[in-house]
Design a protein around this nucleic acid. Structure first.
Lengths: 192, 192
DNA sequence: AAATTTGTACTGACCGGTCAGTTTAAAGAG
DNA sequence: CTCTTTAAACTGACCGGTCAGTACAAATTT
């Protein structure tokens, strides 16, 4: 990894943590530079502005998120793929809790400079779930009249909410338990 | 309604809209005052600080949210109550979209002054769903080993995400359709 | 019933701190 | 020699909070 890439990585990590804790607007560039162990000028040398840093960070994070989900689905039968994708989302959030909080906080605004973030998540991350559901419908495993896009966003939001509650309230609980409950819910195994 | 109550109401409305659009930190007190049609000093006369205004607004909104859900559940059989609560959450978000966006954006921070907001939502709003699910389990309509708290937060998050997507992407679509899809999902009617 | 006082709600110019972004000169790395 | 980073000082716009003063209606006094 080049020196530049390493510097950027450290700035990303520092910025994600701080912004998740305090929000974009109340996080100062001085704080980001300090936590990254870098001079303030370096931030501007590498990114040009606070907003540009955040923008790059969002795209980078969402791309990695979507990539993780895609790999989980790859090569699996539809219903197994859904299970794997839910597990991957859960694990990703567990490992990148700060990023998840940042996403949820900045992505669902009505105006502002980051509503494109919501669009990005929809296209990339939720899109993967949609593809899996579409395959399941095509394979006759799910109702043919299913509103795939709505269901995808429902699954994504459900997992996101539960994952954040899990990390907040019972961080020691095992992922597999959370995963199992979620899958039971999705498979309609709750109703007796 | 007293003059004071009217002024506070207008400040609430203005603040909710602006904060949902731009976030708490980037919304200025001058903007709130201007949109409410009062002087800046009036904000401080009535609430003491920007944070106190936001705090009052959160409690007010969450209480009304929870109240709506509670009334929907009241007097209904468990599964009918669940259906009614989901419908009520959907309708509340449709009617108070700004407030919902504000909630999702500010309530899931890790630190900061509003993590108590997440706690408030959990205790009040999600709590109602939890009570309904508990009743359903007690009545033998849902699996006895169901993790009620996790399921409640899953339902809440799922509805919240879908509702916001609905308002953003297809605002003209009828609530009942969205509601039906959501209930099918919850009842496990998707798997063939 | 006119004059005065009191309490409450509101006003908006102003102050002081904060912070994004700039500048500069010099040092380290590939 | 060029690219990257550093450290520190500086600028200027912006914004939360303050406060002396206004508006006005109800109570109290004369």
């Amino acid at each position: 990894m080049s020196r530049t890439a390493a510097t950027r990585e450290r700035l990303f990590t520092a910025a994600i943590e701080l912004i998740a804790e305090r929000g974009f607007a109340t996080t100062t560039v001085d704080q980001i530079a300090e936590r990254a162990g870098v001079a303030k000028g370096t931030v501007y040398y590498n990114f040009g502005s606070k907003a540009a840093l955040f923008s790059a960070l969002l795209e980078y994070g969402i791309e990695r998120f979507a990539q993780t989900l895609r790999e989980a689905a790859d090569g699996r039968e539809p219903m197994a793929a859904l299970e794997a994708v839910v597990g991957a989302e859960l694990r990703f959030i567990g490992e990148h809790e700060s990023f998840a909080r940042l996403l949820i906080a900045e992505a669902w605004r009505s105006r502002g400079d980051w509503q494109y973030a919501a669009q990005l998540i929809r296209e990339r991350a939720i899109g993967v779930i949609g593809d899996v559901l579409r395959a399941a419908v095509a394979g006759g495993r799910l109702r043919p009249d299913l509103d795939v896009d709505m269901a995808a966003s429902a699954v994504f939001g459900m997992v996101l909410t539960v994952a954040l509650d899990w990390r907040t309230l019972q961080p020691d609980r095992d992922v597999t338990e959370v995963h199992a409950t979620l899958m039971d819910l999705l498979r309609g195994r709750l109703v007796t």
